[in-house]
Amino acid sequence: MNQIIETLLAHRSIRKLQDKPLTKEQIELIVTSAQAASTSSYVQAYSIIGITDPAKKKKLAELSGNQSYVEKNGHFFVFCGDLHRHEMAGAMENKEVVDSIESTEKFMVMLIDAALAAQNAAIAAESLGLGICYIGGIRNQLDEVCELLKTPKRVIPLFGMAVGYPEKLTDQKPRLPLANIYHENEYEQDEAVYQQQLEEYNKVISRYYHERTKGKREDTWTCQMAGTFEKQSRMYMHEFINKHGLNLK
């Protein structure tokens, strides 16, 4: 096994990070690594906003559900889907691009590009001995986040990434069994097989929580997911995205 795969397999979210700033060199290396990710048709439909202002970090932490590690870390990155510069490119070249920009397809390209760039950034950070934690909570109150970050139309903050020196390493959560994720030639249609795999995984997860909490918690994965999806969080998102001129057709 090579060092890159070892880094990938060692991933875990780190929520206790030292309040010690990253160096300019570290930040630039992480961002440059993000830019090296694959991008659909060279579109590069994302931007990254680094938050160094303590007041902005504090406010983002509040808007994200009072998550302390949004404020206390080595550096906080916000990954944005960005089709603003493509609208500018159309104006510069006197081409009609708005219909394309407002399409679901280009919206998907934007999301995929940003996610690929972010994962490159995460791997780069971890390869430097740093810890990372993705923050979806910035989508809790996106109007306020956009105002705080002064993002223009066609730019959507998608998620944050807290990066820093780990204060404490947590245990890795066991992932779904490979057979439940990887399908060969066609999707597994036998729901009895699928359910059996999930039941086995529930036992693994329940054991993980039991050991980690000394018996105080024994959640199963399917129970967690059913509860999560029953909750209906951030249901304003479709309207918000349309308001910003994206995913309209």
Rank of each mutant, 00 (worst) to 15 (best):
Q141H: 13
D99C: 08
L22W: 07
M237I: 15
M1L: 05
Q224S: 11
G215M: 06
D143V: 14
N180F: 01
E186D: 13
A89P: 01
C223E: 15
C133E: 05
T213M: 07
D19G: 00
G227N: 15
K58R: 08
K153S: 06
K16A: 09
S100L: 07
R212M: 04
K16H: 05
M225H: 03
N180P: 05
Y208V: 01
Y209A: 02
I181T: 11
D143I: 12
L130E: 08
L169V: 00
I132Y: 03
R207N: 13
H86C: 04
K95R: 07
L148M: 06
G164N: 05
I181R: 09
Y208M: 00
D219W: 12
R234Y: 15
Y42T: 14
N120E: 07
S127C: 04
H11F: 12
V98L: 13
Q18K: 13
Y69Q: 07
K168V: 01
S100G: 04
K249D: 12
L128P: 00
A125Q: 05
G129N: 03
Y165W: 02
L83G: 01
D82I: 09
R15T: 02
T23S: 15
V98N: 02
M235R: 13
P21I: 03
V78L: 08
G227T: 13
T151I: 09
M225K: 12
I49Y: 02
E71D: 03
D53K: 07
L60E: 05
Q67T: 08
E147H: 03
D190A: 10
N140R: 14
L149H: 06
I138Q: 03
T220V: 09
L148F: 10
I241Y: 10
V193Q: 10
E87R: 12
G137N: 06
A36D: 00
K203A: 15
T7Y: 00
A117I: 02
I4F: 01
A45L: 02
Q18R: 08
I205R: 03
D143W: 11
G81L: 10
A115N: 01
G136C: 11
S38D: 07
L116Y: 02
V193D: 03
L149K: 06
K243T: 14
L116K: 07
V163L: 01
V155L: 04
V204I: 11
S33N: 09
Y201A: 04
M237P: 11
G50Y: 02
K150F: 10
L17T: 04
G164H: 02
R154M: 06
R139G: 08
E230A: 13
T52V: 04
S233C: 09
Y187Q: 06
Q67M: 12
R139E: 13
A91R: 13
C133N: 11
K150D: 13
L128S: 01
L130A: 03
D143L: 14
M235A: 15
P174C: 08
D19M: 00
G160C: 11
V98Y: 05
A34W: 04
A10I: 00
Y182T: 14
L130H: 07
T104N: 07
E230L: 10
L83K: 03
